[in-house]
C-alpha cells in the first residue's frame, strides 16, 4: 500500500481513498466473511469499516500502518454486526477439501466439515480471535492490540474458543449411545 495514497486520502483526497479501497477490499472481504459467516453481513461490515476509515483518516498518524489500522476498524465493525437487527440466511460456500496433506481425502473432508460446523457454532467474538490468530497469523500481543484487550485476556479467549471448537469436533466423533444408555 502506497503511503503517499494514505497521506493524500488523509488530507481529503477522495480519489486517493478510492484507490486504497480497491487495493484492500478483497482482503477485508475475506476476513469479514470468515468472522461473520454471512456474506451480506460481511459486506455491510466492510462498508462500515471503510466509512469509518474515511472519517477517521485524519487521526492516522503513521501511514505505514494503514493496513493494520484498517483491519482493526473492520474487526470492530464485525463485532458490531451482532447488534444489527437484520438476520440473514447462512451463505458460506462449501468448504474446499484442499486442506492438510493427508492421504485419505474422504477423512479430510469429514474433518473439514467438522471444523466448519464447529466454527458455525462459535460466537462472533470467538471466531474473531481465531481468525486473528490462525488466519491473519497475528501474535497474541498484536491480536490483543487489535481488540483493545490485555494480552492475557486475548490468550484466554483464544484458549476458550479453541476449547469450544474442540468440544464440537469431539462431540461429532463420539459414538452414538446405545438404546440402554439413552434410556438412563
Amino acid at each position: 500500500m502506497d503511503p503517499q495514497l494514505v497521506i493524500l486520502a488523509r488530507g481529503g483526497d477522495h480519489d486517493a481513498f478510492a484507490r486504497l479501497v480497491a487495493g484492500s477490499i478483497g482482503r477485508l472481504n475475506a476476513i469479514a466473511r470468515l468472522i461473520l459467516h454471512d456474506y451480506a453481513l460481511a459486506e455491510d461490515a466492510v462498508q462500515d469499516a471503510f466509512v469509518d476509515a474515511w472519517r477517521s483518516l485524519p487521526g492516522l498518524r503513521d501511514p505505514e500502518r494503514f493496513q493494520a489500522w484498517l483491519t482493526r476498524l473492520l474487526i470492530r465493525s464485525c463485532q458490531d454486526s451482532r447488534r444489527r437487527a437484520r438476520r440473514r440466511t447462512l451463505e458460506m460456500p462449501l468448504p474446499s477439501i484442499d486442506g492438510p496433506n493427508v492421504a485419505d481425502h474422504q477423512a479430510t473432508f469429514a474433518v473439514v466439515d467438522q471444523i466448519e460446523r464447529g466454527l458455525n457454532g462459535l460466537t462472533i467474538d470467538q471466531r474473531t480471535v481465531l481468525v486473528l490468530t490462525y488466519y491473519l497469523d497475528l501474535p497474541i500481543a498484536e491480536g490483543a492490540s487489535v481488540l483493545g484487550i490485555p494480552t492475557g485476556t486475548m490468550k484466554s479467549r483464544v484458549h476458550r474458543a479453541l476449547a469450544a471448537l474442540r468440544a464440537t469436533v469431539d462431540a461429532d466423533e463420539r459414538p452414538m449411545p446405545t438404546t440402554a444408555e439413552r434410556t438412563i
Partner: peptide, 27 residues
C-alpha cells in the same frame, strides 16, 4: 490437529471476491 486443520480451513475458505458494485457502494 484442530489448530492445524483450522489454519488450513481458513486458508481454503477465505473468499476475497469483490462483489459487483461493492466498491461503488463504498465510494
Amino acid at each position: 490437529d484442530v489448530e492445524l486443520f483450522l489454519r488450513a480451513q481458513f486458508e481454503a475458505t477465505a473468499d476475497p471476491t469483490v462483489l459487483d458494485g461493492q466498491i461503488d457502494s463504498v465510494l
